[in-house]
């Protein structure tokens, strides 16, 4: 499990799959989810296998989540805002009609 070297207090929270996750405003979203001991962020479109962040730098697209209803967001490139609603992405994103 990830341990924190930065011991500043959390000043906000958001939800991932309905679970409240404490965080600091403006921090990296993928890091905040990983710190909550969550490893799988999405499942694949082909087999449904679970996946989690691999590269943390925007290359691998394994950390895809839905942020406030918008699918296909790379959690490693997003920052945390208080109250944001993050959902794991199950398979391919649905097209908004």
């Amino acid at each position: 499990m990830f341990q924190r070297l930065d011991l500043r207090e959390f000043d906000t929270s958001f939800t991932f799959a309905g679970r409240a996750i404490p965080a600091r405003e403006g921090e990296n979203l993928a890091a905040a989810i990983l710190r909550a001991d969550i490893k799988a962020f999405r499942s694949t479109p082909r087999s449904g296998a679970p996946r989690g962040p691999y590269c943390m730098m925007g290359v691998c697209f394994e950390c895809l989540v839905t942020v406030d209803g918008e699918p296909n967001r790379q959690a490693c490139l997003e920052t945390v805002h208080g109250g944001m609603v993050v959902e794991p992405q199950a398979g391919a994103a649905e097209i908004n009609r």
């Binding site: 499990m1 990830f2 341990q3 924190r4 070297l5 930065d6 921090e27 990296n28 890091a31 905040a32 990983l34 710190r35 490893k39 799988a40 962020f41 296998a49 679970p50 996946r51 989690g52 962040p53 691999y54 590269c55 943390m56 730098m57």
Partner: peptide, 25 residues
């Protein structure tokens, strides 16, 4: 290598540099 919890060493370093996170295991 696709299992959740497997990442690159660079990813581990990014988590250390930008989020101050270290994995104890």
């Amino acid at each position: 290598w696709t299992l959740p919890g497997v990442m690159t060493a660079g990813a581990a370093q990014i988590l250390l540099k930008s989020a101050g996170l270290v994995e104890d295991d």
